[in-house]
């Protein structure tokens, strides 16, 4: 397999193609490719309650 790896233009073109590929994948799978990548647990986000930037102590 002969790829022109010494030619900087090849890397620019390949990066462009990668961005385009990412766009295509994102277009088809807007919420991520099924079964690929990390899954968020339960979709919940832990938050810290603050008042005037100071954490509120648990009662």
């Amino acid at each position: 397999m002969d790829l022109p790896v010494r030619d900087w233009q090849f890397w620019v073109a390949s990066a462009t193609a990668l961005v385009a590929l990412r766009y295509v994948v994102k277009m088809i799978f807007p919420s991520g490719i099924p079964f690929v990548g990390k899954r968020r647990k339960g979709g919940a986000t832990r938050a810290v309650l603050t008042v005037e930037r100071k954490p509120v102590e648990k009662p």
Binding site: A13, A17, A20
Partner: peptide, 16 residues
């Protein structure tokens, strides 16, 4: 446009 760029890359490499 994105598909064209990907197809161009897939159709241009590797060099033989």
């Amino acid at each position: 446009l994105a598909i064209s760029i990907v197809l161009w890359w897939l159709g241009s490499y590797p060099h033989v």
